[in-house]
């Protein structure tokens, strides 16, 4: 197992600067509450998307698993939270707990499916799982409301104190707090020997196994943790918007989160968050210009990015050097 000798040089390279940048990022995120009180709903969406992208980063950026169906966990989390709020309790924190738990359980169960096969098989399996769940949510009309979505969700005030207001104050603060907690956890995980072994697996699974990394167990673990985060993100969407519809399982959602992560850059945790900011602002601007056709420009952006090479992007933000090799 790789331990300190490998971890120290990369961490020491710019630890102080990295920390300052991180602090700046969170300070900006908190300051946004006061600076942009009219855009809190958008900020809430950004925080949720950021958390979702963070989850994908763990899978894709750190473990190198290409997933086309990450929305499966997001969607399941959203429906779990929504159903719990509707039928069991209106406590939003329990709903979030249920969302994270259900995402994690699904992640654990399906992790064994993505261990096998090539990139293509993984793509198909992840895509298949999300389609399967989307179809199930569509057909289980009595439980999920089918195409109409879950309606009439009400969430009680957080801690009995903070009501979910129309401006999105509580929503954004809650999402931001969850995002912050998850980033801390992810930061701890990826900096640990566990995180180092993940990168080893990503760069060369065969060699990783040869030097004694338990590849299967590591992948199962990271996939489960990532799914838990994605479930939590879905839960946050359900709790803060108090509505869940079939589009949480949409293929476009899985594709979008990939774009978000690529925009920000993979493999350094903040890529997803910065990408989420860029993506949502971009979407906001384009969709005011052409409400119906904003996806065209997103597509064009993707194509242009890929032709230009995605390595060049995100290098701007990157402070922590990482071992080379495609993710």
């Amino acid at each position: 197992m790789q331990t300190t000798p490998f971890a120290i040089p990369s961490k020491a390279a710019g630890a102080g600067r990295t920390f300052a940048l991180e602090a700046l990022f969170w300070a900006a995120a908190v300051a946004a509450i006061f600076l942009a009180p009219r855009r809190l709903l958008l900020l809430n969406e950004i925080a949720i998307l950021g958390l979702f992208a963070l989850s994908l980063d763990l899978v894709l950026g750190y473990a190198g698993i290409v997933s086309l169906g990450h929305a499966a966990f997001f969607g399941l989390g959203a429906y779990s939270a929504g159903l719990l709020l509707l039928h069991v309790t209106t406590n939003p924190l329990w709903a979030l707990f249920a969302a994270a738990l259900s995402g994690g359980v699904l992640g654990f169960a399906t992790s064994f499916l993505v261990l096998r096969g090539t990139d293509l098989t993984r793509l198909m399996v992840t895509l298949g799982v999300s389609l399967l769940l989307g179809e199930a949510a569509n057909k289980l009309h009595d439980l999920t409301g089918g195409a109409d979505g879950l309606q009439g969700i009400t969430a009680a005030p957080v801690f009995g104190l903070f009501r979910f207001d129309l401006a999105g104050h509580t929503a954004y603060v809650l999402s931001l707090a969850m995002l912050f907690a998850c980033v801390l956890v992810a930061r701890r995980i990826t900096a640990s020997p566990f995180g180092m072994t993940l990168r080893t697996i990503r760069d060369n699974p065969l060699r990783a196994a040869a030097i004694g990394v338990p590849v299967t167990r590591r992948l199962v673990a990271v996939y489960t943790i990532a799914a838990l985060f994605a479930g939590l993100a879905g839960g946050l969407l359900a709790v803060t918007t108090q509505f869940v519809s079939l589009d949480v399982f949409d293929f476009a959602r899985s594709a979008d989160v990939m774009l978000v992560l690529i925009l920000g850059g993979t493999g350094y945790l903040y890529g997803g968050l910065l990408g989420a900011v860029a993506f949502k602002v971009l979407q906001d601007v384009i969709s005011t210009l052409t409400p119906q056709y904003w996806r065209f420009w997103i597509g064009l952006l993707l194509v242009a990015l890929m032709i230009a090479g995605r390595d060049r992007l995100g290098a701007v933000f990157k402070r922590v050097p990482r071992a080379g090799g495609p993710s």
């Binding site: 793509l123 594709a255 119906q292 056709y293 996806r295 065209f296 597509g299 993707l302 194509v303 890929m306």
Partner: peptide, 23 residues
Amino acid sequence: RPHLDQVLFSIGLVFMAVTAVDY
């Protein structure tokens, strides 16, 4: 390129095709 790039590139093409034809 890696498969990830190919996936993202072709998804971008799909989005463009869908909206362009819609338009």
